[in-house]
Design a protein around this nucleic acid. Structure first.
Lengths: 217, 217
DNA sequence: CCTCCCATCCCCTGTTCGGGGGAGATTGCG
DNA sequence: CGCAATCTCCCCCGAACAGGGGATGGGAGG
């Protein structure tokens, strides 16, 4: 039994999504709908779902809140954003909140059905343009070196920490070294990357895949 | 006519990929192979291809260089990384260099065939685990607000610039305001985002979709 | 043995930043 | 009209940072 939640304010689109869900998940399923943020949050708190299709633009708020709520109460729920808004800011916000997919409603039904049916295999449901947008987020027009960029092991450790916003003192404590040593490593990093500030270092750290899970020291 | 380049050092895997390419691109195609970085770069410079399957781990270098070369000489070429290396650093490096896909060789042939055949529709060829990894790059376990985070227009402008590593003085010049005003906006940004350093600001800027194309001031 | 690289520590300097005040101008809303 | 928000600019100060110098060890390799 697949339990599905559809969050969408417009009645006809809600019906359209319901039809898509019925085709995409051919096992016996149970579809519930919500037209407002309030209703969606209530449903999310009361019941548990296997899949959720969430519109971002709700009359009384943003679907991001539904997504966050579902993530908290039941992390296994597969949450897919279904919207017309393709702004980078919303894409990033949805992914940050842990969306398993991001589909644009302008797509033909059969494409959405196919994407949703692949969800169970662990394949994220992403509209082509969204996937491309996400990948372009990583694009870099400057020189792309090998992942290590000739940084030594210790330097990469320091870079990862200062890019999280930690101060030299905190990095020193974290890595059990003197603050002066941290400063020395940072100088080497700056020289190798051709930069001269922590903000640039943070940018490069993300590019080098030393991605911080979250900031703050 | 689809012109395909396969870059792979191991003969049997090269043969395996050739078979996959033949199935994925059913139009009349022409498949060329290269076993080393040297050979691949030579081929990339001489001929032009519609699709390239590139292994990262070549005996005389990294497939990233092939990718970069193809991107420069013919940007329309669809470049897909086919490898066993799933490190975040390599994924980010490949995407930074402009890869159109990233497939793990451990996957069954039919999955790879399907992903490659969807390439022409603009759907990036990503192994499920890779796609998930990419999406997790955006994940954030802390409080996720709305995309604007209540930042005013001017504040977002300042944030975008300082996250690129620019100094207050440079931001002031860029936005035609006094350095003291920049400092004031930064204080507001820090208060609203609950942070206290530029590195954290840079992190949040990326999260808010104010993604810098490249750093430097 | 000597050299190169890495990591560790210390000194020094000037600049930048973070954070605390206050103050005037403009806009929009009730 | 008063009120709130935004943008603009100024003052101050201490802490943190950027960048230069030099010194000590330990390995790797010629």
């Amino acid at each position: 039994m697949t339990r599905i939640l559809i969050v969408e304010d417009l009645a006809d689109i809600r019906k359209w999504l319901t039809g898509i869900a019925q085709k995409a998940f051919d096992a016996p399923h149970e579809i519930e709908t919500a037209a407002t943020l309030r209703a969606a949050l209530g449903a999310a708190r009361k019941n548990s779902y296997d899949v959720a299709l969430i519109d971002l633009n709700l009359p009384d708020g943003s679907g991001i809140d539904v997504l966050k709520c579902l993530r908290q109460s039941r992390p296994e729920t597969l949450c897919v954003i279904t919207t017309v808004m393709g702004d980078d800011a919303w894409i990033v916000a949805a992914l940050s909140a842990g969306a398993n997919g991001y589909l644009l409603k302008e797509q033909p039904s059969e494409v959405i059905v196919r994407q949703l049916s692949q969800l169970a295999d662990g394949i994220p449901a992403l509209s082509p343009s969204i996937a491309r947008r996400i990948m372009e987020h990583f694009q870099y027009t400057g020189p792309v070196g090998e992942p290590d960029a000739n940084l030594t092991g210790r330097e990469k450790e320091v870079l990862a920490l200062i890019s999280r916003g930690m101060r030299n003192v905190d990095v020193a404590e974290q890595l059990s070294m003197a603050e002066s040593t941290v400063a020395h490593h940072i100088k080497s990093i700056y020289r190798k990357l051709g930069i001269s500030s922590r903000a640039e270092a943070s940018w490069h750290a993300a590019r080098l895949g030393l991605a911080p899970g979250q900031p703050g020291g």
